[in-house]
Simulated assay, not measured.
Amino acid sequence: MGESVRRAARATGHLTLAAAMCFGMYLFVTVLLIAAVGTLAVVGCWLLPEVVLLVRRIAGAKRNLTTRWTGREIPEAYPPMTGTLRERLRVSVRDPGSHRDFRWMLAYYLYGALLALALPLWPLALVVDGAWAGVLRRDPVVLPLIVRLADTEARWSTALLMPSPEAGLARRVEELTETRADAIAAHEAELRRIERDLHDGAQANLVALSMRIGLAKRAYDHDPAAARGLLDDAQDQAEQALTELRHVVRGIHPPILTDRGLVGAVRALAASSGLTVTVDDGGLAEGTRAPAAVEAAAYFVVAESLTNAAKYSGTGLAGVRLARTRRGLTVRVRDEGRGGADESAGTGLLGMRRRVAALDGTFDVTSPAGGPTVIDVELPCVW
């Protein structure tokens, strides 16, 4: 009984807000009429894009209200309303997402009004239901009907506000275009980094190595001791060049990933980070490995996150959690530092986001002032 009352109370709150929104939309009819007349008269055509944007916000509020009841998100699929007045008018007239919003609004004038008319009868029905359940010891009748009515209202709103397949496809193409641009930018940045590392590190050491060998050859006949010293220096220079080359190779695809897998590589990062890091492998150490590109992206996120934590967080504590899901691999890196991480401050967050986006993954950062900083990544893959 108590659970039925709680669900009915929550359903009543949902339906009350839905009815209030419907009442507000009746007041909005005047705005629609003014925009329609102004557009037909041409002189007020600038009103149409503004009205469409306002309708999008109203539909967005209804999507949020419905999502809170059902727990299932209703996505949006709108083209941007930018450019000249002519371009904005073209979008306003041709946007299928806005067409569906107006269709929902017209339908909501009908079934939302029914909700508003039924609300005054609910207190009386609840009293009767309480007497029915309390005196006659029968199951309540009205409470389940209220919950069912809220479910029906949410189902209708979901069906009317869900983007059309064409709009969803257009939005997906736009997302993939943005992702492709980010992936190209990340690739170019990586190439520039490799070129810089090779030029400033390995190449400089190899040039110095060549010069020392040349000097040793000249000194070999008349000063063998000096030649031997130069060869010793050349050997040190060769070792430095090899170290630089290994550093560059690790930046492309860390060999430790191939040798130890993602869990082993992350544990090695944690041990060398200078922080006290707990690693929760989520059972990945004993399971099937993710594709190489996914492991490399996850490794990069963990490495960059721990580096940032060591440099900027002001704490010695961090944690890494890896988990396998039905959709792919999730990574969470948390540090207990001061927070306030800013993606525009050059701390590597943008590079992480681009690398994850290139694999069609999601990247979220939560870093309030005072901490903690939490980085959540989901990388889709087939296990």
Rank of each mutant, 00 (worst) to 15 (best):
R10I: 03
T16A: 09
M21K: 12
Y26R: 07
L32T: 12
T39F: 10
V55F: 07
V55C: 03
I58S: 11
T67E: 12
W69Q: 07
W69L: 00
E73I: 15
T84D: 05
R86G: 09
R88P: 00
R88G: 01
L89M: 12
S98K: 14
R100S: 06
R100V: 11
F102E: 07
W104P: 10
M105H: 13
Y109R: 08
L136P: 12
D139Q: 12
V141G: 10
L143K: 08
R148G: 15
R148Q: 11
A159N: 07
P165C: 07
E166S: 00
G168V: 10
L169W: 14
A170E: 10
A170K: 15
T177W: 15
A181F: 05
L191H: 06
R193I: 04
L198W: 14
L198C: 09
L209Q: 05
A225R: 08
L231A: 11
E239H: 14
A241Q: 01
R250N: 02
G264V: 02
A271C: 03
G282P: 04
A285G: 15
E286W: 13
P291D: 01
A293D: 13
E295A: 03
A297R: 03
A297S: 12
E304I: 04
G316V: 05
R324D: 09
V333D: 00
A345M: 02
G346T: 06
T347V: 13
V356S: 01
A357I: 00
V365D: 07
P372F: 00
W383I: 03
